[in-house]
Write a protein that binds this DNA or RNA. Structure first.
Lengths: 206, 206
DNA sequence: GTACTTCCGTACCGATCGGTCCTGAAGTGA
DNA sequence: TCACTTCAGGACCGATCGGTACGGAAGTAC
Protein backbone atom coordinates (compact mmCIF):
# COMPACT_ATOMS: atom_id res chain seq x y z
CA UNK A 1 0.00 0.00 0.00
CA UNK A 2 2.37 2.61 1.22
CA UNK A 3 5.66 1.84 -0.45
CA UNK A 4 4.74 0.74 -3.95
CA UNK A 5 7.38 -0.64 -6.31
CA UNK A 6 9.16 2.17 -8.08
CA UNK A 7 8.55 0.37 -11.35
CA UNK A 8 4.86 1.31 -11.33
CA UNK A 9 3.78 4.05 -13.72
CA UNK A 10 3.70 7.33 -11.86
CA UNK A 11 0.22 8.74 -11.84
CA UNK A 12 -1.28 11.88 -10.44
CA UNK A 13 0.47 14.70 -8.72
CA UNK A 14 3.98 13.80 -7.63
CA UNK A 15 5.16 14.18 -4.05
CA UNK A 16 6.42 17.66 -3.35
CA UNK A 17 8.55 17.08 -0.25
CA UNK A 18 11.84 15.24 0.05
CA UNK A 19 11.04 11.93 1.67
CA UNK A 20 14.62 11.28 2.75
CA UNK A 21 14.97 14.67 4.37
CA UNK A 22 11.65 14.25 6.16
CA UNK A 23 12.69 10.87 7.52
CA UNK A 24 16.01 12.29 8.64
CA UNK A 25 14.23 14.99 10.61
CA UNK A 26 11.82 12.51 12.16
CA UNK A 27 14.77 10.39 13.22
CA UNK A 28 16.28 13.35 15.03
CA UNK A 29 13.06 14.10 16.88
CA UNK A 30 12.70 10.49 18.02
CA UNK A 31 16.34 10.52 19.00
CA UNK A 32 16.00 13.63 21.12
CA UNK A 33 12.56 13.08 22.66
CA UNK A 34 12.03 9.33 22.55
CA UNK A 35 9.10 7.54 20.95
CA UNK A 36 6.47 8.57 23.45
CA UNK A 37 7.91 12.03 23.96
CA UNK A 38 7.75 12.80 20.25
CA UNK A 39 4.26 13.98 19.34
CA UNK A 40 2.82 13.98 15.86
CA UNK A 41 2.99 17.75 15.98
CA UNK A 42 6.69 17.68 16.92
CA UNK A 43 7.41 15.23 14.14
CA UNK A 44 5.49 16.83 11.30
CA UNK A 45 6.74 20.31 12.14
CA UNK A 46 10.33 19.10 12.00
CA UNK A 47 9.65 17.16 8.81
CA UNK A 48 8.08 20.22 7.22
CA UNK A 49 4.97 18.36 6.12
CA UNK A 50 1.39 17.97 7.28
CA UNK A 51 -0.15 15.10 9.12
CA UNK A 52 -1.90 13.96 5.97
CA UNK A 53 1.34 13.77 4.04
CA UNK A 54 3.06 11.90 6.81
CA UNK A 55 0.30 9.30 7.08
CA UNK A 56 0.17 8.91 3.29
CA UNK A 57 3.93 8.48 3.04
CA UNK A 58 4.73 6.42 6.14
CA UNK A 59 1.51 4.83 7.39
CA UNK A 60 1.44 5.73 11.05
CA UNK A 61 3.67 6.73 13.98
CA UNK A 62 4.88 3.19 14.61
CA UNK A 63 5.90 2.71 10.99
CA UNK A 64 7.56 6.09 10.87
CA UNK A 65 9.55 5.08 13.93
CA UNK A 66 10.55 1.81 12.32
CA UNK A 67 11.78 3.65 9.25
CA UNK A 68 13.59 6.17 11.42
CA UNK A 69 15.43 3.36 13.19
CA UNK A 70 16.44 1.91 9.82
CA UNK A 71 17.79 5.27 8.80
CA UNK A 72 19.59 5.59 12.09
CA UNK A 73 21.26 2.24 11.49
CA UNK A 74 22.41 3.27 8.05
CA UNK A 75 23.40 6.78 9.10
CA UNK A 76 24.61 7.79 12.56
CA UNK A 77 25.04 4.17 13.65
CA UNK A 78 26.71 2.96 10.47
CA UNK A 79 30.03 2.86 12.31
CA UNK A 80 28.72 -0.37 13.84
CA UNK A 81 28.39 -2.15 10.53
CA UNK A 82 31.71 -0.80 9.28
CA UNK A 83 33.42 -1.95 12.46
CA UNK A 84 32.50 -5.55 11.73
CA UNK A 85 34.72 -5.54 8.67
CA UNK A 86 37.83 -4.50 10.55
CA UNK A 87 40.55 -7.10 10.13
CA UNK A 88 41.04 -8.17 13.74
CA UNK A 89 38.77 -8.73 16.71
CA UNK A 90 40.62 -6.07 18.62
CA UNK A 91 40.06 -3.49 15.93
CA UNK A 92 36.41 -4.46 15.65
CA UNK A 93 35.90 -3.86 19.35
CA UNK A 94 37.89 -0.66 19.38
CA UNK A 95 36.00 0.73 16.39
CA UNK A 96 32.70 0.04 18.07
CA UNK A 97 33.59 1.65 21.36
CA UNK A 98 35.28 4.69 19.87
CA UNK A 99 32.49 5.01 17.32
CA UNK A 100 29.91 4.92 20.09
CA UNK A 101 31.74 7.63 21.99
CA UNK A 102 31.92 9.85 18.92
CA UNK A 103 28.39 9.26 17.64
CA UNK A 104 26.85 9.74 21.07
CA UNK A 105 28.45 13.13 21.61
CA UNK A 106 28.14 14.75 18.19
CA UNK A 107 27.39 18.44 18.29
CA UNK A 108 25.14 18.13 15.28
CA UNK A 109 22.83 15.51 16.68
CA UNK A 110 21.12 14.68 19.97
CA UNK A 111 23.39 13.12 22.58
CA UNK A 112 23.17 9.42 23.28
CA UNK A 113 21.96 6.57 21.10
CA UNK A 114 18.51 6.40 19.54
CA UNK A 115 18.60 2.61 19.78
CA UNK A 116 19.01 2.85 23.53
CA UNK A 117 17.10 5.87 24.68
CA UNK A 118 14.11 6.21 22.37
CA UNK A 119 12.08 3.52 24.10
CA UNK A 120 14.02 1.76 26.86
CA UNK A 121 10.84 1.63 28.89
CA UNK A 122 7.41 2.44 27.59
CA UNK A 123 3.75 2.74 28.40
CA UNK A 124 1.05 0.85 26.56
CA UNK A 125 1.27 3.04 23.47
CA UNK A 126 5.02 2.54 23.15
CA UNK A 127 5.22 -1.24 23.34
CA UNK A 128 5.68 -1.68 19.60
CA UNK A 129 8.50 0.83 19.49
CA UNK A 130 10.05 -0.78 22.54
CA UNK A 131 10.06 -4.14 20.79
CA UNK A 132 11.61 -2.63 17.68
CA UNK A 133 14.54 -1.41 19.73
CA UNK A 134 14.91 -4.61 21.74
CA UNK A 135 15.20 -6.46 18.44
CA UNK A 136 17.60 -3.83 17.15
CA UNK A 137 19.93 -4.26 20.09
CA UNK A 138 19.70 -8.06 20.02
CA UNK A 139 20.45 -8.09 16.33
CA UNK A 140 23.51 -5.91 16.79
CA UNK A 141 24.84 -8.12 19.55
CA UNK A 142 24.22 -11.24 17.48
CA UNK A 143 26.20 -9.84 14.55
CA UNK A 144 29.08 -8.98 16.83
CA UNK A 145 28.97 -12.43 18.37
CA UNK A 146 29.21 -13.98 14.90
CA UNK A 147 32.13 -11.76 14.10
CA UNK A 148 33.98 -12.81 17.25
CA UNK A 149 33.15 -16.44 16.54
CA UNK A 150 34.78 -16.07 13.15
CA UNK A 151 37.72 -14.27 14.72
CA UNK A 152 38.31 -17.16 17.07
CA UNK A 153 38.12 -19.64 14.22
CA UNK A 154 40.67 -17.57 12.33
CA UNK A 155 42.99 -17.64 15.30
CA UNK A 156 42.37 -13.97 15.76
CA UNK A 157 40.97 -14.35 19.26
CA UNK A 158 42.27 -16.65 22.01
CA UNK A 159 40.36 -19.91 22.42
CA UNK A 160 39.78 -18.97 26.05
CA UNK A 161 37.55 -16.05 25.11
CA UNK A 162 33.85 -16.81 24.75
CA UNK A 163 32.46 -14.94 21.73
CA UNK A 164 29.00 -14.55 23.22
CA UNK A 165 30.23 -13.15 26.51
CA UNK A 166 32.71 -10.95 24.72
CA UNK A 167 30.03 -9.55 22.42
CA UNK A 168 27.82 -8.99 25.43
CA UNK A 169 30.62 -7.13 27.16
CA UNK A 170 31.43 -4.85 24.23
CA UNK A 171 27.79 -4.00 23.60
CA UNK A 172 27.32 -3.41 27.30
CA UNK A 173 30.09 -0.83 27.31
CA UNK A 174 28.73 0.74 24.13
CA UNK A 175 25.25 1.08 25.65
CA UNK A 176 26.77 2.49 28.82
CA UNK A 177 28.68 5.04 26.79
CA UNK A 178 25.39 6.12 25.23
CA UNK A 179 23.83 6.58 28.66
CA UNK A 180 26.84 8.59 29.80
CA UNK A 181 26.54 10.82 26.75
CA UNK A 182 22.89 11.44 27.60
CA UNK A 183 24.04 12.32 31.10
CA UNK A 184 26.41 14.96 29.80
CA UNK A 185 29.83 13.32 29.64
CA UNK A 186 32.20 14.62 26.97
CA UNK A 187 33.60 12.70 24.03
CA UNK A 188 37.10 12.93 25.50
CA UNK A 189 35.99 11.32 28.73
CA UNK A 190 34.14 8.57 26.91
CA UNK A 191 37.13 7.84 24.71
CA UNK A 192 39.16 7.32 27.86
CA UNK A 193 36.45 4.98 29.13
CA UNK A 194 36.64 3.09 25.84
CA UNK A 195 40.40 2.75 26.24
CA UNK A 196 40.01 1.35 29.73
CA UNK A 197 37.34 -1.05 28.54
CA UNK A 198 39.65 -2.48 25.88
CA UNK A 199 42.04 -3.68 28.59
CA UNK A 200 39.51 -6.18 29.91
CA UNK A 201 40.14 -8.61 27.10
CA UNK A 202 43.19 -10.60 26.07
CA UNK A 203 43.41 -10.00 22.34
CA UNK A 204 45.56 -12.04 20.05
CA UNK A 205 46.91 -8.97 18.31
CA UNK A 206 47.65 -5.42 19.34
CA UNK B 1 1.41 22.70 52.71
CA UNK B 2 1.74 19.17 51.65
CA UNK B 3 4.33 17.57 53.88
CA UNK B 4 3.88 19.20 57.27
CA UNK B 5 6.29 18.49 60.10
CA UNK B 6 5.35 15.32 61.92
CA UNK B 7 5.60 17.19 65.19
CA UNK B 8 2.38 19.10 64.49
CA UNK B 9 -0.71 18.05 66.37
CA UNK B 10 -2.66 15.65 64.26
CA UNK B 11 -5.98 17.11 63.33
CA UNK B 12 -8.83 15.83 61.32
CA UNK B 13 -9.29 12.43 59.80
CA UNK B 14 -6.05 10.48 59.60
CA UNK B 15 -4.73 9.04 56.36
CA UNK B 16 -6.19 5.64 55.64
CA UNK B 17 -3.71 4.31 53.11
CA UNK B 18 -0.12 3.23 53.71
CA UNK B 19 2.01 5.99 52.25
CA UNK B 20 5.11 3.83 52.04
CA UNK B 21 3.31 1.06 50.22
CA UNK B 22 1.74 3.53 47.80
CA UNK B 23 5.13 5.06 47.01
CA UNK B 24 6.61 1.62 46.50
CA UNK B 25 3.93 0.80 43.96
CA UNK B 26 4.39 4.11 42.16
CA UNK B 27 8.11 3.42 41.95
CA UNK B 28 7.44 0.11 40.26
CA UNK B 29 5.12 1.68 37.70
CA UNK B 30 7.67 4.38 36.84
CA UNK B 31 10.33 1.68 36.68
CA UNK B 32 8.37 -0.44 34.25
CA UNK B 33 6.77 2.23 32.07
CA UNK B 34 9.03 5.24 32.41
CA UNK B 35 7.97 8.70 33.50
CA UNK B 36 6.01 9.61 30.41
CA UNK B 37 4.65 6.12 29.90
CA UNK B 38 3.20 6.03 33.40
CA UNK B 39 -0.18 7.74 33.42
CA UNK B 40 -1.92 9.07 36.50
CA UNK B 41 -4.43 6.29 36.07
CA UNK B 42 -1.69 3.64 35.97
CA UNK B 43 -0.07 5.12 39.05
CA UNK B 44 -3.11 5.62 41.26
CA UNK B 45 -4.54 2.22 40.39
CA UNK B 46 -1.30 0.53 41.42
CA UNK B 47 -1.08 2.67 44.54
CA UNK B 48 -4.64 1.78 45.47
CA UNK B 49 -5.67 5.39 46.04
CA UNK B 50 -7.56 8.08 44.18
CA UNK B 51 -6.15 11.03 42.31
CA UNK B 52 -7.21 13.34 45.12
CA UNK B 53 -5.32 11.36 47.72
CA UNK B 54 -2.24 11.23 45.54
CA UNK B 55 -2.20 14.95 44.95
CA UNK B 56 -2.84 15.66 48.63
CA UNK B 57 -0.04 13.34 49.70
CA UNK B 58 2.61 13.94 47.05
CA UNK B 59 1.83 17.21 45.27
CA UNK B 60 1.94 16.27 41.62
CA UNK B 61 3.37 13.75 39.19
CA UNK B 62 6.82 15.32 39.15
CA UNK B 63 7.06 15.27 42.93
CA UNK B 64 5.77 11.72 43.07
CA UNK B 65 8.48 10.77 40.64
CA UNK B 66 11.12 12.50 42.73
CA UNK B 67 9.99 10.61 45.80
CA UNK B 68 9.90 7.37 43.84
CA UNK B 69 13.51 7.88 42.78
CA UNK B 70 14.48 8.51 46.42
CA UNK B 71 12.80 5.28 47.39
CA UNK B 72 14.51 3.49 44.55
CA UNK B 73 17.87 4.72 45.81
CA UNK B 74 17.15 3.51 49.33
CA UNK B 75 15.58 0.24 48.16
CA UNK B 76 16.44 -1.63 44.99
CA UNK B 77 19.53 0.51 44.35
CA UNK B 78 20.80 0.47 47.90
CA UNK B 79 23.52 -1.93 46.85
CA UNK B 80 25.25 1.10 45.38
CA UNK B 81 25.58 2.88 48.69
CA UNK B 82 26.59 -0.29 50.49
CA UNK B 83 29.24 -0.97 47.89
CA UNK B 84 31.00 2.29 48.72
CA UNK B 85 31.83 0.98 52.18
CA UNK B 86 33.59 -2.12 50.93
CA UNK B 87 37.18 -2.18 52.18
CA UNK B 88 39.05 -2.09 48.87
CA UNK B 89 38.57 -0.36 45.52
CA UNK B 90 38.34 -3.73 43.83
CA UNK B 91 35.57 -4.90 46.09
CA UNK B 92 33.72 -1.61 45.67
CA UNK B 93 33.74 -2.01 41.90
CA UNK B 94 32.85 -5.67 42.02
CA UNK B 95 29.94 -5.04 44.38
CA UNK B 96 28.55 -2.37 42.10
CA UNK B 97 28.74 -4.46 38.94
CA UNK B 98 27.41 -7.63 40.49
CA UNK B 99 24.76 -5.66 42.32
CA UNK B 100 23.69 -4.04 39.07
CA UNK B 101 23.42 -7.40 37.37
CA UNK B 102 21.31 -8.81 40.19
CA UNK B 103 19.06 -5.79 40.72
CA UNK B 104 18.43 -5.36 37.02
CA UNK B 105 17.23 -8.91 36.53
CA UNK B 106 15.15 -9.52 39.64
CA UNK B 107 12.07 -11.61 39.04
CA UNK B 108 10.09 -9.52 41.50
CA UNK B 109 10.69 -6.18 39.87
CA UNK B 110 10.84 -4.69 36.39
CA UNK B 111 14.04 -5.43 34.49
CA UNK B 112 16.66 -2.75 34.10
CA UNK B 113 17.36 0.31 36.22
CA UNK B 114 14.82 3.01 37.00
CA UNK B 115 17.58 5.60 37.13
CA UNK B 116 18.53 4.79 33.56
CA UNK B 117 15.35 3.90 31.76
CA UNK B 118 12.60 5.99 33.32
CA UNK B 119 13.51 9.16 31.43
CA UNK B 120 16.67 8.79 29.34
CA UNK B 121 15.03 10.92 26.68
CA UNK B 122 11.85 12.89 27.13
CA UNK B 123 9.35 15.19 25.54
CA UNK B 124 8.47 18.59 26.93
CA UNK B 125 6.40 17.16 29.77
CA UNK B 126 9.21 14.92 30.92
CA UNK B 127 12.05 17.40 31.14
CA UNK B 128 11.86 17.73 34.90
CA UNK B 129 11.98 13.98 35.39
CA UNK B 130 14.82 13.75 32.91
CA UNK B 131 16.81 16.26 34.91
CA UNK B 132 16.11 14.39 38.14
CA UNK B 133 17.69 11.27 36.66
CA UNK B 134 20.63 13.08 35.08
CA UNK B 135 21.40 14.49 38.53
CA UNK B 136 20.89 11.07 40.06
CA UNK B 137 23.42 9.46 37.76
CA UNK B 138 25.92 12.30 38.10
CA UNK B 139 25.64 12.14 41.87
CA UNK B 140 26.28 8.40 41.88
CA UNK B 141 29.33 8.77 39.68
CA UNK B 142 30.66 11.60 41.86
CA UNK B 143 30.37 9.48 44.99
CA UNK B 144 32.21 6.64 43.33
CA UNK B 145 34.91 8.99 42.12
CA UNK B 146 35.41 10.23 45.70
CA UNK B 147 35.64 6.68 46.92
CA UNK B 148 38.32 5.85 44.35
CA UNK B 149 40.15 9.04 45.20
CA UNK B 150 40.24 7.93 48.81
CA UNK B 151 41.32 4.46 47.76
CA UNK B 152 44.27 5.84 45.88
CA UNK B 153 45.26 8.00 48.82
CA UNK B 154 45.11 4.92 51.03
CA UNK B 155 47.38 3.06 48.65
CA UNK B 156 44.46 0.88 47.75
CA UNK B 157 44.57 1.79 44.07
CA UNK B 158 47.66 2.26 41.87
CA UNK B 159 48.75 5.87 41.35
CA UNK B 160 48.50 5.27 37.63
CA UNK B 161 44.72 4.89 37.78
CA UNK B 162 42.67 8.06 37.39
CA UNK B 163 39.76 7.99 39.86
CA UNK B 164 37.48 10.03 37.62
CA UNK B 165 38.04 7.86 34.55
CA UNK B 166 37.76 4.73 36.63
CA UNK B 167 34.49 5.86 38.17
CA UNK B 168 33.23 6.74 34.70
CA UNK B 169 34.19 3.29 33.46
CA UNK B 170 32.50 1.40 36.27
CA UNK B 171 29.30 3.41 36.03
CA UNK B 172 29.36 2.99 32.26
CA UNK B 173 29.42 -0.78 32.61
CA UNK B 174 26.71 -0.62 35.27
CA UNK B 175 24.44 1.43 32.99
CA UNK B 176 25.18 -0.91 30.13
CA UNK B 177 24.21 -3.86 32.28
CA UNK B 178 20.90 -2.16 32.99
CA UNK B 179 20.27 -1.70 29.26
CA UNK B 180 21.13 -5.33 28.63
CA UNK B 181 18.69 -6.42 31.33
CA UNK B 182 15.98 -4.36 29.66
CA UNK B 183 16.90 -6.11 26.43
CA UNK B 184 16.36 -9.53 27.95
CA UNK B 185 19.79 -10.76 29.01
CA UNK B 186 19.89 -13.10 31.99
CA UNK B 187 21.54 -12.47 35.34
CA UNK B 188 24.07 -15.23 34.64
CA UNK B 189 25.17 -13.60 31.41
CA UNK B 190 25.44 -10.21 33.03
CA UNK B 191 27.50 -11.60 35.88
CA UNK B 192 29.93 -12.94 33.31
CA UNK B 193 30.02 -9.52 31.71
CA UNK B 194 30.75 -8.01 35.11
CA UNK B 195 33.63 -10.45 35.58
CA UNK B 196 35.11 -9.52 32.22
CA UNK B 197 34.76 -5.84 33.03
CA UNK B 198 36.73 -6.22 36.23
CA UNK B 199 39.78 -7.30 34.24
CA UNK B 200 40.13 -3.90 32.64
CA UNK B 201 41.65 -2.37 35.73
CA UNK B 202 44.89 -3.02 37.57
CA UNK B 203 43.79 -3.27 41.18
CA UNK B 204 46.21 -3.13 44.06
CA UNK B 205 44.59 -6.07 45.78
CA UNK B 206 42.79 -9.20 44.62
C1' DG C 1 -8.64 20.15 -23.10
C1' DT C 2 -10.20 16.19 -20.26
C1' DA C 3 -10.09 12.48 -17.12
C1' DC C 4 -7.80 10.91 -13.43
C1' DT C 5 -4.86 10.59 -9.47
C1' DT C 6 -2.53 12.20 -5.65
C1' DC C 7 -1.18 16.07 -3.55
C1' DC C 8 -1.64 19.34 0.69
C1' DG C 9 -4.09 21.95 4.48
C1' DT C 10 -7.52 22.02 7.79
C1' DA C 11 -11.08 20.93 10.52
C1' DC C 12 -12.35 17.44 13.25
C1' DC C 13 -12.72 12.78 15.73
C1' DG C 14 -12.94 10.09 20.30
C1' DA C 15 -9.74 9.09 23.84
C1' DT C 16 -6.61 10.24 27.18
C1' DC C 17 -3.45 13.39 29.31
C1' DG C 18 -2.28 15.85 34.06
C1' DG C 19 -4.73 18.34 37.28
C1' DT C 20 -8.78 20.60 39.97
C1' DC C 21 -13.04 21.01 42.48
C1' DC C 22 -16.82 19.73 45.13
C1' DT C 23 -19.29 16.72 48.24
C1' DG C 24 -20.40 13.81 51.91
C1' DA C 25 -18.36 10.81 55.14
C1' DA C 26 -15.27 9.95 58.93
C1' DG C 27 -12.13 10.65 62.28
C1' DT C 28 -10.00 14.19 65.83
C1' DG C 29 -9.60 17.05 70.29
C1' DA C 30 -12.15 19.59 73.54
C1' DT D 1 -22.00 16.60 71.42
C1' DC D 2 -19.74 19.89 68.70
C1' DA D 3 -16.50 22.34 65.81
C1' DC D 4 -12.91 21.28 62.98
C1' DT D 5 -10.07 19.02 59.67
C1' DT D 6 -8.90 15.83 56.33
C1' DC D 7 -10.34 12.00 54.13
C1' DA D 8 -12.00 9.36 49.61
C1' DG D 9 -14.62 9.39 45.46
C1' DG D 10 -15.97 11.00 41.19
C1' DA D 11 -17.35 14.47 38.09
C1' DC D 12 -15.16 17.64 35.50
C1' DC D 13 -11.53 20.89 33.34
C1' DG D 14 -8.79 22.53 29.10
C1' DA D 15 -5.16 20.66 26.46
C1' DT D 16 -3.18 17.34 23.79
C1' DC D 17 -2.85 12.68 22.11
C1' DG D 18 -2.75 9.68 17.54
C1' DG D 19 -5.48 9.37 13.65
C1' DT D 20 -9.24 10.43 9.97
C1' DA D 21 -12.34 12.79 6.57
C1' DC D 22 -13.02 16.11 3.32
C1' DG D 23 -12.20 19.32 -0.39
C1' DG D 24 -9.83 22.21 -3.41
C1' DA D 25 -5.45 22.61 -5.87
C1' DA D 26 -1.98 20.70 -8.82
C1' DG D 27 0.19 17.67 -11.31
C1' DT D 28 0.24 13.49 -15.20
C1' DA D 29 -1.28 10.66 -19.20
C1' DC D 30 -3.94 10.65 -23.10
Amino acid sequence: MTAMPASQTKLGRPREFDSDYALEQAMRVFWAKGYEGASLTDLTEAMGITRSSMYAAFGNKDELFRRAVERYTEGPASYGIRALSEPTAREVAESILRGAAAASTSREAPHGCLGVQAALSAGDNGLTAQKVLVDWRQDGAARLESRFLRARAEGDLPETEDPRTLAAYITTVAYGIAVQAATGRSEAELLRVADVAMNAVTWSHG
